[in-house]
């Protein structure tokens, strides 16, 4: 049945950019692999290479949009639309997807984009944004090490990191304006896995320093206060108590184990 052959060719063309090159460069090999009659091959050769490319880009983009886009959207936005299209086609050529496998390919795709970033200042910027998205995707998915004992600790699945761009800008991903000028501004971000996705917050360097040292450890209220004081001393706008209180209320600091008095009562 010839409709079967046409559908098989078209669906393969939709996910295999290399097949459209092969169709025009070596039509008889495509005719043989897809069992096309002569008139079907002649019809296939009337397809426009440009249309096929647009078609392949659409298919890749729509699949990416389905679920995976939020994890790569900032990185992709730093490439021009024509390079985005080219990169998508190149990626799906290397990583063939008969079904929508984008969710399994997020890190591979971000690494692929980082490799394609240019060597100039714009490239540094691209790499920083890609590093951010990779961190967001990876960090909170890794489970925490078991922490034993009782006391206070940073809530599980909380991570902090610093980048060469303001945290707010990275989180919003609205890079249109003022991006090059802002590159080099140190930004601090807190990420927490909420069970379904990653919540992101901009923090300042004080909280960053505090959490960086606190993650994965168990504290008594006293120890926590000592750590906070060491940091708060460098940031005059708040006391150690205020710092801990804020994190406690936000659920970033939690009590662990049985019956722990609130640090406030100590």
């Amino acid at each position: 049945m010839s409709l079967q052959q046409i559908q098989s060719l078209m669906l393969n063309l939709s996910i295999k950019p290399q097949l459209s090159n092969q169709l025009f460069a070596d039509p008889s090999s495509v005719q043989a692999s897809y069992d096309l009659a002569d008139h079907e091959l002649q019809a296939a050769l009337q397809l426009q290479a440009r249309d096929l490319e647009a078609f392949q880009t659409h298919v890749a983009l729509k699949r990416l949009n389905r679920l995976a886009m939020p994890y790569v959207t900032r990185s992709l936005s730093l490439f021009s639309s024509s390079s985005r299209a080219r990169l998508l086609r190149e990626f799906v050529t290397i990583h063939e997807m008969k079904q929508n496998f984008w969710m399994q390919n997020i890190i591979t795709f971000l690494d692929f984009l980082a490799d394609k970033a240019t060597g100039d200042k714009h490239g540094d910027l691209q790499r920083e944004v890609i590093a951010f998205e990779k961190w967001v995707y990876e960090s909170c998915r890794a489970t925490d090490e078991e922490v034993s004992g009782t006391g206070l600790r940073v809530a599980s699945r909380v991570r902090v990191a610093t980048f060469q761009l303001p945290g707010e800008l990275l989180i919003d991903g609205k890079f249109q304006e003022a991006l090059p000028e802002l590159f080099g501004t140190q930004g601090f971000v807190l990420a927490q896995w909420n069970g379904a996705e990653v919540d992101l917050y901009e923090i300042d360097s004080g909280y960053y320093d505090f959490l960086k040292q606190g993650i994965g450890r168990m504290f008594t209220s006293q120890e926590l206060l000592v750590l906070a004081e060491g940091i708060a001393v460098r940031y005059e706008e708040r006391t150690a108590h205020e710092m801990i209180e804020e994190l406690y209320e936000a659920g970033i600091l939690v009590t662990h184990g049985k019956e722990v008095k609130s640090w406030l009562e100590v």
Partner: peptide
């Protein structure tokens, strides 16, 4: 439209060939 053949399935809708065979199927 169609979007599936064998183990390949895409999210896009491909227009059918405008032929009797496609009408029948």
């Amino acid at each position: 439209s169609y979007s599936r053949v064998g183990d390949i399935e895409i999210e896009n809708f491909i227009a059918l060939p405008y032929t009797d065979e496609a009408i029948e199927v």
